Simulated assay, not measured.
Amino acid sequence: MPRESNHTQQSNAPTVLVVEDETMVRMPIAEYLRDCGYNVVEAGDASEAIAAMAAETPVSLVFTDIRMPGKMDGFGLAEWFRSHYPDVPVLLTSGYHGGRSSPGISIPGTRFIEKPYSQNQVARRIAALLDS
């Protein structure tokens, strides 16, 4: 199930869907993005992310890990978003990408940021993607 926030949603603020199976990685970046003024929906894997979209949560951007448990990884999730929500940008992240210099770049609307990242780097990248 997508995680609910204890924070009040800001009606005009963009909503970021953070998809990360490692709770100790997901929680701090989600909290930081909330502190930056974004509404945040958290999911532990691709199926939870898709369930969040089925709940008609208006998502402005997806920030997802590439390597996740389940039937679909971050690449598959990015492709799912391209098919179902082509206007929603996807920011992929991973600490391991098998030597590929820019994973996901071949998927339109998708960008990549390597782990370890700083929270500020992620927030700047999200702001830039939402502005473009």
Rank of each mutant, 00 (worst) to 15 (best):
M1C: 12
E4L: 03
S5G: 03
S5V: 02
H7W: 12
T8C: 09
N12E: 11
N12Q: 04
T15F: 13
V16F: 06
L17G: 06
V18C: 09
V18F: 02
E20C: 05
D21W: 15
E22Y: 06
E22M: 11
M24F: 13
M24Q: 07
M27E: 07
I29H: 01
A30G: 09
E31S: 07
L33N: 01
G37L: 15
Y38H: 08
Y38Q: 05
N39V: 15
N39Y: 12
V40C: 08
V40F: 10
V41A: 13
A43C: 15
G44I: 15
G44W: 14
G44Q: 15
D45R: 05
D45E: 13
E48V: 03
E48T: 04
E48A: 12
A49K: 02
A49Q: 04
I50Y: 10
A51V: 03
A52W: 05
A52R: 08
M53E: 04
A54S: 07
A54W: 10
A54R: 04
E56F: 09
E56R: 09
T57P: 01
P58N: 09
V59N: 10
S60P: 14
S60E: 09
V62L: 11
F63G: 00
T64L: 03
I66K: 07
M68E: 12
P69N: 08
G70K: 06
K71R: 15
K71N: 14
M72K: 11
M72A: 12
D73W: 10
G74C: 11
G74W: 02
F75I: 05
G76M: 11
L77R: 08
L77P: 12
A78W: 01
A78T: 01
E79I: 02
E79G: 07
W80R: 03
W80M: 05
W80D: 06
W80F: 10
W80Y: 13
W80N: 04
W80T: 04
D87T: 01
D87W: 11
D87L: 11
V88W: 11
V90L: 06
L91S: 00
L92H: 03
L92M: 08
T93K: 02
S94M: 09
G95R: 05
Y96N: 14
G98W: 13
G99Y: 13
G99H: 11
G99F: 14
R100P: 02
R100D: 12
R100M: 13
S101A: 12
S102D: 07
S102F: 02
G104P: 00
I105K: 01
I105A: 06
S106F: 01
P108K: 03
G109R: 00
G109A: 02
G109E: 08
R111N: 09
R111T: 04
R111G: 12
F112K: 01
E114T: 04
K115R: 11
K115L: 13
K115Y: 10
P116S: 00
Y117N: 00
Y117E: 01
Q121M: 07
Q121F: 14
Q121N: 06
V122W: 00
R125Q: 09
I126W: 13
A127K: 02
A127F: 02
L129H: 04
L130D: 09
L130H: 01
D131T: 05
S132K: 05
